[in-house]
Design a protein around this nucleic acid. Structure first.
Length: 489
RNA sequence: GGCGCGUUCGUCUAGCGGCUAGGACGGAGCCCUCUCAAGGCUUAAACACGGGUUCGAUUCCCGUACGCGCUACCA
């Protein structure tokens, strides 16, 4: 049994797209599941579209996502080089071989002539395709013209009649008539191959067993199959993935939101969440589990369970997945991430002990979606309130709150290394002696220490802040809040 | 225009002839509660349409509609 080898073959034209990430991921998952190899190949056969640094960025992003390739640029295996522009002579040799065998031919038509016939075809409302003008030349004629240095391309000869059927793992048998196929250019006039030649030559030479790629390639697969037949090579298995869509169901693109993996990374999404989310756009394990690690995805993945229809890339659920993955992370790991964020925040000059940060993490865990939320949703753990939330003041601060808090501060002051429980009994004691409800103290106190109306349990907050800081914040609230509340003293 | 592919709640989806069409996110409501979350419970919400095949179609076949993709010396 020959081994499974899959590949992700992006062209280095920019950032890695989330759709590209999914394609790479499925190739990776399938290869790993089958104990095979996952190859990264760079398809840079269009010189005009090449973007400097794009390949490095692609590799970096894949690495970030945890989708590691076994062979590829910078990780040479036995089938390199893995960059198509470094394999030019190979494609040329195979293209000419096809010409020799009468399965392809030289074409000398100028771009102008091509443009002209296309224009006429469109005007006449017939489907635009090459008119096979140069296919009629004899070998000698063509060879003669080529020798004079006239620019040429090589086109594959597509049978004039009949049809071709191939099997797709996801879609079943697909049949198309030869007559709707163009005599596709396989070698351009600059000596570079087109995608169609390069993909076939490389997939064969690199012993790719399964071609897993986007659905946009489905219509040109017959050309590829034909090429395999012309070369007499074994045809790989095909699996064409459904597209990722914009909310309006068009093919996912920029303009309608972020599409680069980089964008999501910068927004603070965890790699685990993005990978999990993207894996579920078109695939599911068949039961009701939804939160998967990369290892679990490998264990469960199968091409048979990949769906046929496009999926809208809708980030609502991604946020939830981020929350779920974040909360599954061990404290130590979250601590590291929080410290990193702190370094980049306005609090980077203050030192917080790991123990302190860990207590903040445990208090906030259920309340955060992103790591940055630990800081943004509870800045009061890092400095005293700068202001007091107006709605909360209005709702929770009463005319007598200052005197109540004063009394409470007195109760707190005498406590010796207080615990949650001792704070609580102290508060209850104060409420009782003031003849008020506990909540008449609780809410103003929360406002005093945090500046806001929402957050972890009050006693958790003050235990974390400590007695001195708590009392200090109470006093400052007694001083400042009445003015905001608008009560006359 | 031609060719191909697709179509189950708003979104991601389960379903592979017989189900009260299930789950998740999001929404609504209730419970818990010092707030906010989390958690628990409840709820609204879908088989594009028309023909067949069949005792019986969401499921199989054929049309139609709609959507998307491809139609380059781009990938």
């Amino acid at each position: 049994m020959s081994s499974v080898r899959t590949r992700f073959a992006p062209s280095p034209t920019g950032f890695l797209h989330v759709g590209g990430l999914r394609t790479a991921l499925y190739n990776y998952l399938f290869a790993k599941k089958e104990n095979g190899s996952f190859i990264l190949r760079i398809e840079d056969t269009d010189r005009s579209r090449k973007v400097e640094g794009a390949m490095e960025n692609l590799i970096d992003t894949l690495h970030w996502a945890g989708v590691e390739f076994d062979e590829g640029p910078g990780k040479e295996g036995n089938f390199g080089p893995y960059i198509q522009s470094q394999r030019l002579s190979l494609y040329q040799r195979y293209a000419h071989q096809l010409v020799e065998e009468g399965k392809a031919y030289y074409c000398f038509c100028t771009p102008e002539r091509l443009e002209e016939i296309r224009r006429k075809q469109i005007a006449a409302k017939i489907s635009a395709s090459y008119d096979r003008h140069c296919r009629a030349f004899t070998k000698e004629e063509a060879e003669k013209r080529r020798k004079t240095g006239e620019p040429f391309v090589i086109r594959m000869k597509v049978p004039l009649e009949g049809e071709l059927t191939f099997t797709d793992i996801i879609r079943g048998d697909v049949t198309i008539a030869y007559k709707i196929l163009d005599d596709q250019v396989i070698l351009k006039s600059d000596g570079y191959p087109t995608y169609h030649l390069a993909v076939v030559v490389d997939d064969h030479l690199m012993k790719i067993s399964h071609v897993i790629r986007g659905e946009e390639w489905l219509p040109s697969t017959p050309k590829h199959v034909l090429l395999y037949k012309y070369f007499g090579w074994e045809i790989p298995q095909f699996a064409h993935l459904p597209l990722l869509l914009n909310p309006d169901k068009s093919k996912l693109s920029k303009r309608q939101g972020d599409v680069a993996v980089e964008d999501y990374r910068l927004k603070g999404y965890l790699r685990e969440a993005l990978v999990n989310f993207v894996a579920f756009l078109g695939w599911n394990p068949g039961d009701e589990r939804e939160i998967f690690s990369l290892e679990e995805l490998i264990r469960e993945f199968s091409l048979e369970r990949v769906g046929k229809s496009g999926a809208v890339f809708n980030t609502e659920k991604l946020d939830w997945m981020n929350f779920e993955h974040l909360r599954r992370k061990p404290d130590a790991e979250v601590l590291c991430m929080v410290k990193e964020k702190l370094m980049l925040s306005e609090f980077n000059t203050t030192h917080f002990s790991d123990a302190y940060l860990l207590s903040v993490i445990s208090a906030m865990r259920e309340r955060v979606t992103f790591v940055k939320d630990f800081i943004e949703k509870s800045p009061y753990f890092f400095r005293a309130p700068l202001h007091y939330d107006a709605d909360t003041v209005k709702k929770r601060w009463q005319k007598d709150s200052p005197s109540y808090l004063k009394k409470l501060a007195e109760e707190f002051s005498v406590l010796e290394s207080p615990t949650k429980e001792s704070y609580e009994t102290a508060l209850h004691r104060a409420a009782e002696s003031l003849h008020i409800k506990n909540s008449d103290l609780i809410h103003p106190l929360r406002l005093a220490v945090s500046g806001m109306g929402a957050g972890p349990g009050l006693y958790d907050i003050i235990v974390i802040l400590g007695k001195d800081e708590t009392v200090r914040r109470m006093n400052s609230a007694i001083e400042k809040v009445p003015a905001i509340a608008g009560f006359q003293q």
